[in-house]
Design a protein around this nucleic acid. Structure first.
Lengths: 133, 133
DNA sequence: CCTTGACCCTGTAGTTGCTACAGGGTGCAT
DNA sequence: ATGCACCCTGTAGCAACTACAGGGTCAAGG
């Protein structure tokens, strides 16, 4: 590998991404295909490292690959207003809020079910009862 | 369809389940295969209705199909202790708790990012900045 | 010079829990 | 007899990876 270029494994280590995942991102067009060495190895640049870091950070924050694709496209138009970006982020926040409250409702039900159970036999298990029609 | 038997569409309506989903549950062995009419239609009994209701209720509470399979198996051994059931439910509760706190952490980060953004141009968007390396 | 081992390549299939067809058959009412 | 709602099988698609199989490449050590 030439100086200034990274092998796929290096890129993976630096971004905490599995090699297969990087190839997957390339296949679906999220990460551009890098140049190849004479031995047909992918040779990544610092630019790729930046993009992939961005992608991984956004994934960690729960953005979908489609949302990330949009964010990446938008982030290249430096002079545009960032309203669209704000919109994506706010939509995502709303989704997260919804998921949290769904899970909290579910948690209450589960917890109620569990605290009812005296742990005798299955025949009088309140958990099974709660699930049965 | 004979009296006391349900067609797949009826079963679906009564349990709020898509017909394809019911066939899927049969394929993966979660719901037993019903008898067939002379015309090769599935003919479900009240027993199937009970099982499917159980499955759907458990799904609504976020149990995985594997967990539900275990719950169904256990719920048939009426005389056994219900410890194992309790364990599955508690494991699931712990998972839900973990998901909630992950989402809450994520929510804080997202919210912070969004409140920083003045909505000028992309070039000085705090959201993009927060995601960039 | 040769071998070993770590790395890389492509291509395909599996995961979870469904959902959506395509291309046909059944059953009942008009 | 014909229209229509319903049923059948089988296959492929979704998200976002993950896990092989079956090979090729490259640098270091003997």
């Amino acid at each position: 590998m030439q100086a200034g270029h990274l092998a796929i494994g290096d890129l993976g280590r630096q971004t905490d991404t599995k090699v297969e995942t990087i190839r997957y991102y390339e296949r679906i067009g999220l990460l551009s295909a890098p140049a190849r060495t004479p031995g047909n190895y992918r040779a990544y640049t610092a630019e790729h490292l930046n993009r992939l870091s961005f992608i991984r950070r956004a994934r960690d924050l729960g953005f979908s690959l489609d949302q990330i694709r949009a964010l990446l496209d938008l982030s290249d138009e430096r002079e545009r207003s960032c309203d669209a970006i704000d919109t994506i982020a706010k939509q995502h926040l709303a989704e997260v809020d919804r998921k949290i409250s769904d899970l909290q409702a579910l948690r209450r039900e589960l917890n109620h079910m569990i605290t009812q159970c005296d742990c005798g036999t299955v025949a009088d298990c309140r958990i099974i009862e709660a699930l049965s029609p």
